[in-house]
């Protein structure tokens, strides 16, 4: 167990091992996304009101889910970095951040474009939309931390500071959601709130599952792909880089 943990501290080991994993997750992402989206957009039956608009769900639901999961993941990685000081975790957190931010954007846009035919407007101050909007700003703040703080406190300190920001943010996310819901019930007429959808037949939710799994795999794939390069960038002067990537570094 301890040895397994120790392995994660080794940048070289991670760099070499992650090549294969990232490929595997890449293929899985391709498989499940194709399956889920083609099934969802082409073969799944129309809604009971003969409505095709709901197909946006196959992108909206996974992206909204992953938007939150990714932030949580970043916070957990930050916690692991602060407690066990495993070198690779802040790099993983940094690497997955753009994917999370993209998911928020996609969730917001797909929410708006789903809402337009449903509610008659692109944007309503619905609790979910509003809290997703603030999640977007949390991502942007974290991104700014990763890109600006190294200049003022050095890279390693900046990673730790960003981890603290992510943890503070993740504690706040449920509070923000709760407060926005409270605010929403005060202000919004109940008629245009997202209510529970009618129960779906299997032919509708199975593609949704496939799509969600596809998004998860995509997250891991993109995270590993970026993390490998960020690790290389951070450790460019180390001996193991020359050993592993002689073509990149050694060639003069």
């Amino acid at each position: 167990m301890w040895q397994w943990f120790h392995k994660w501290g080794s940048a070289k080991w991670f760099y070499q091992a992650s090549a294969a994993w990232s490929r595997v997750f890449g293929y899985f992402a391709l498989l499940f996304l194709t399956l889920g989206l083609v099934w969802g957009f082409v073969f799944a039956p129309a809604d009971y009101q003969m409505n095709h608009n709901y197909r946006i769900m196959y992108l909206h639901v996974p992206s909204a889910m992953l938007a939150q999961i990714t932030y949580l993941l970043i916070a957990i990685l930050g916690l692991v970095n602060l407690v066990w000081k495993i070198k690779i975790t802040p790099i993983l957190a940094r690497a997955v951040l753009p994917f999370g931010a993209s998911c928020v954007l996609l969730a917001l846009l797909s929410g708006a474009f789903w809402g337009r035919p449903t509610w008659g407007t692109y944007w309503i101050w619905d609790a979910r939309l509003t809290s997703t909007l603030f999640l977007f700003f949390l991502y942007m703040g974290l991104w700014a931390c990763y890109s600006l703080l190294p200049a003022s406190m050095g890279r390693n300190s900046a990673y730790k500071a960003a981890a603290i920001v992510a943890i503070v943010g993740s504690v706040n996310i449920p509070i923000i959601k709760f407060s926005v819901e409270w605010w929403n019930t005060l202000h919004q007429p109940a008629s245009i709130r997202l209510t529970q959808r009618p129960a779906m037949p299997a032919s509708m939710y199975l593609p949704l599952f496939a799509s969600i799994i596809g998004f998860y795999c995509l997250m891991v794939y993109l995270m590993l792909k970026r993390a490998r390069l960020l690790l290389l960038e951070d450790e460019l002067h180390k001996a193991w880089v020359k050993e592993v990537e002689p073509k990149l570094v050694g060639g003069s």
């Binding site: 957009f41 129309a46 003969m50 409505n51 095709h52 608009n53 197909r55 946006i56 992108l59 909206h60 954007l105 996609l106 846009l109 797909s110 474009f113 789903w114 337009r116 035919p117």
Partner: peptide
């Protein structure tokens, strides 16, 4: 079903 603009914009995005 008349919602093509919305659906395909999201897919494009």
């Amino acid at each position: 079903g008349g919602h093509g603009f919305y659906v395909w914009t999201v897919v494009l995005f």
